[in-house]
Design a protein around this nucleic acid. Sequence first.
DNA 1: ATCGTGATTGTTGGC
DNA 2: GCCAACAATCACGAT
Length: 103
Amino acid sequence: MPKTAKASRKDNAVRGKKKKDPNAPKRGLSAYMFFANEQREKVREDNPGIKFGDVGKILGEKWKALSDKQRAPYEAKAAADKKRYEDEKAAYAQGADEDEESE
DNA sequence: ATCGTGATTGTTGGC
DNA sequence: GCCAACAATCACGAT
């Protein structure tokens, strides 16, 4: 029993195991996403020519290297994005009952 | 209420 | 267009 489906999450997604949502109100991004957005340039700048394999790991290291307060702004964005998701979810839940709003 | 999980997010670089 | 480590997430679902 996989506790944290670490194997291949997409393996399930790509296959279409669960039913998923019709509108799929995608979740919000995660702190890492925002962090990567800023660091990606920096990391590549410090490591010109490297590929993702390295950048990705470097990003992760730097990410953890940050203090909680440093991650704050990123977490804040994540929280803000999560809010965004709430909106989608809300609209999705409502639209699920209501007929598709012909747009 | 509590636990578990799945689905999702974004980066780059190569085919 | 997809996939790969990297990290977070966290809402939904089942119990």
